[in-house]
Computed example of a mutant assay.
Amino acid sequence: MRLTKFEHAALLLEQSGRKLFVDPGSFTTPITDAANTVAVVITHEHPDHWTPDQLRRILEASPDAMLYGPEGVVRAASDFAVTRVDPGDTVEVAPFSLRFFGGRHAVIHSSIPVIDNVGVLVNDTLYYPGDSWAVPEGVEVDTLAVPAGAPWMKIAEAMDYVLEVKPKRAFGTHEMVLSVAGKSMAADRLAWATAEGGGEYVNLQPGDSLDL
């Protein structure tokens, strides 16, 4: 399976000529190469993780692609046929196996309602928590996509999360809210945390790919 990182939270997984997109949102350049997409996973309803325009572009290229998200996404994206997924669900959409964890977005502030959020484990290999620190219980994570910057987090939380999950490999995501200097500092801290657990940190940039 091959992973390509896009800007911010968007990821592309490819296997056997098929594609899976995760969180194609407003901070990601327009997705135009979407032929042979079998599924799109949207972890939660915030626009930096999905937009109608991104979904339309994907579906124009692959009209039979399945869309998956929690109840909040089903409501927010009511113009699209989103299949609801909840923590504990497993979905098979060949050649991808999707397992869902978590359930709730991290707290941004006491004045802002907490929304639905699911983390997704793809082919028992890549885990992405969305906007949460949900640990996939009972899973030895091979590769972790870890948030590097957001209004709902501080770097100490990301470091502690990596220390708890102990992935064999990790890379930063959700970083478009950071300056160049901030991205570098976050990468250094996350690299330290990954190494503490015996893993390797890969400083992927938008457009970079990685074989999983």
Score class of each variant (00 low, 15 high):
1 M>F: 00
9 A>V: 15
10 A>P: 04
11 L>R: 06
13 L>T: 10
21 F>T: 02
30 P>I: 03
37 T>E: 05
37 T>S: 03
40 V>K: 08
44 H>I: 03
44 H>V: 01
45 E>C: 07
46 H>S: 11
46 H>R: 13
49 H>S: 07
52 P>W: 03
53 D>Q: 05
53 D>V: 03
54 Q>I: 00
57 R>T: 00
59 L>A: 04
61 A>I: 01
61 A>D: 00
66 M>D: 04
67 L>V: 03
68 Y>M: 13
68 Y>R: 10
71 E>F: 08
80 F>A: 08
81 A>H: 05
88 G>E: 02
88 G>S: 02
92 E>R: 05
96 F>R: 13
97 S>Q: 04
98 L>M: 08
99 R>Q: 12
101 F>W: 02
108 I>T: 10
109 H>S: 13
110 S>W: 10
110 S>C: 07
111 S>L: 03
111 S>V: 08
112 I>K: 06
114 V>E: 15
116 D>S: 15
119 G>Q: 11
122 V>P: 10
124 D>S: 09
124 D>P: 04
127 Y>V: 12
129 P>I: 09
132 S>C: 02
132 S>A: 11
145 A>P: 15
145 A>I: 09
145 A>N: 09
145 A>C: 12
149 G>I: 02
151 P>H: 02
155 I>P: 01
160 D>K: 12
162 V>H: 05
163 L>Y: 13
165 V>C: 02
167 P>E: 14
168 K>Y: 00
168 K>N: 11
168 K>V: 05
169 R>E: 07
170 A>E: 10
172 G>C: 15
173 T>D: 05
176 M>Q: 09
176 M>G: 01
180 V>G: 12
182 G>V: 05
183 K>D: 14
188 D>W: 09
192 W>E: 12
194 T>W: 06
195 A>H: 02
196 E>M: 09
197 G>C: 06
199 G>M: 10
201 Y>N: 09
207 G>D: 14
208 D>S: 13
209 S>C: 12
